[in-house]
Design a protein around this nucleic acid. Structure first.
Lengths: 327, 327
DNA sequence: ATGAAAGCGCTAACAG
DNA sequence: CTGTTAGCGCTTTCAT
């Protein structure tokens, strides 16, 4: 079924191609009667402007790229969904791509995308600063989560919330804390570990670091056995999924949460609500960061290039639930 | 940073545009020495063929569209991930879109996509048969999960597994079963309900239907209180998420699983493994269906149109875990 | 093996 | 307000 083209409509309506084009791009520029007739015929022929051709001519595609390390991670899904609907509200389609946590795939995808989207949202980039900057030089781009010098983005440092978590645990009488480290590719992981170490020092706790672990439930289960073999009384995990897995396994091994172990996650993704008991966690406002980032990206896309990068940071706070308690 | 174009490379290399074009599309057609020089210069200029322009000229974009009702549903995420990597292996980018369970958004997305992708994978379509057929007339398309008459696709009827579930429950001494119904937009929901009812009759059980429920954990929590107010001893849920929520809430209310209630999910998504106790569920082979569907779609895309639709069905089997037991 | 020329379907000055 | 004329960047006959 060959699609109707602009010329088909123009011909049948007895007007020029430009007129039909205008009817679809700047309707106000064409006389009402002509416009209606064209629209009528277009409908008849089931004509729709070809976005590829339009993209070539306009030098803009109307597409937005979103790159995430793992679309199956419940931390990213709400971000993706909210970006999708925000973008749609602005008349953009969204290209989502998953890098499987690989920096190299992230780079390749970014390069491949850069020519078919008007802008890219790069969530928690795994590639190096230089590579991000190189990509940002080719296409309007913002990062979410991690900030890269010289590139616009919205950072979501968890330090504040992590400090609150350690403060809470210390107040609850915990002195020996396990930190379950995140995947080595994750820049955020080193931040979070550092924040935990700093806060522990501040509040007089010792920290034993386990890991690295992939950001997944099963990795957390593996962590639990390490925790059991140590003498810690509380656990802070790189993210909620690891915390969830660790908690599940600890319970399997007959430990009670929070009586025997206090557990803190990071992210406040949906799993935190589904844990039993519900998980105390650091709420990282990633959806808000995404919305803000999209605003920034929008400016970047619609304004003369070479602006100085716009950078925001959104703080994270601890959400206290049932998985932490006094010893 | 204006990207280099084909002409830039041609000019600098002292060859015609066609030659450069060939270097990137049919390298075997150009002499080795010329090719190498062109490649060298292209690298120097950081030239990459513009996929938009190429799409226009070739009448194929190299993009694949994937439409799912809810990207946050762990049932669909593995499908999306596997399609993404399979497509990438064939040199295709993937456009993922989420319809938020809305038939109308699904239709709009399909239409919008149809002109910028070479083919569409429509997972568990929410729109009517006619609309699916209309879309399939405009673009190579396959459905996954639900089959639509006249359209290629891979069906994953759960009937078989559901029958096995009821058989198991009956054998375990359950006589009164609750069925937690799925969202009204879902065609699969009516299938699954019907299958439950049929099997119940076959094995001499009565079924009380509750719902409809959205395919989400919280909806399942709500269902639990309904279950408590009835006199059933076992529950079959439209999907694992509802089962998970229901189970969590039942436990909160002091009921033991499986001693007090046996619970069966459908899908065998990741949550089934994370339930406590691990969830007995009907394994729907959606990833396999996706891979098979992609093969079919590939044929559709690369062959003369108007072929008779290719249809496959993949059966589902019960996976027995810990959430079911004899009364 | 390479180049010239004619588009792919649409937009965007520029005239009128 | 509308039509004419050039492209957007690439591919693809068709010659040579």
């Amino acid at each position: 079924m060959a699609r109707a083209t602009l010329r088909d409509v123009a011909q049948k309506a007895g007007v020029s191609a430009s007129t039909v084009s205008r009817v679809f791009s700047r309707p106000e520029m064409v006389a009402a009667d002509v416009r209606e007739r064209v629209e009528e015929i277009a409908r008849e022929l089931r004509y729709l402007p070809n976005p590829i051709a339009r993209g070539l001519a306009r030098q803009r595609t109307g597409n937005l790229g979103v790159i995430v390390p793992d679309i199956a991670n419940p931390y990213f899904t709400p971000l993706v969904k909210s970006l999708q609907s925000d973008a749609r509200a602005r008349g953009c389609n969204v290209f989502v791509a998953d890098t499987d946590e690989h920096a190299s795939r992230e780079r390749d995808l970014g390069i491949a995308m850069s020519q078919q989207v008007d802008g890219i949202v790069l969530a928690s980039p795994r590639m190096g600063d230089d590579e991000v900057r190189a990509l940002a030089a080719d296409v309007p781009l913002i990062t979410i989560g991690r900030l890269v010098e010289g590139v616009s983005g919205v950072g979501t440092p968890a330090n504040n919330g992590i400090r609150q978590a350690v403060e809470l645990l210390a107040a609850q009488g915990h002195r020996r804390i396990a930190y379950l480290d995140g995947p080595p590719q994750s820049f955020v992981a080193v931040q979070r570990r550092g924040a935990t170490l700093d806060a522990a020092e501040e509040f007089g706790c010792s920290v034993e670091v386990f890991g690295p672990f992939q950001a997944a439930v099963n990795a957390g289960r593996r962590a639990a056995d390490l925790v059991l073999a140590s003498d810690v009384t509380a656990v802070i995990a790189y993210n909620d999924q690891i915390a969830f897995g660790c908690m599940a396994r600890l319970k399997e091994c007959g430990r009670r949460i929070p009586e025997d172990y206090s557990i803190v996650g990071i992210d406040d993704s949906s799993v935190a609500e589904y844990c039993e008991p519900r998980l105390t966690t650091v709420r990282v406002p990633i959806v808000k960061a995404g919305a803000l980032g999209l605003d920034i990206l929008w400016d970047l896309m619609n304004s003369p290039r070479d602006r100085t990068p716009i950078v925001e940071e959104l703080e994270a706070d601890l959400v206290v639930r049932r998985s932490t308690a006094a010893r």
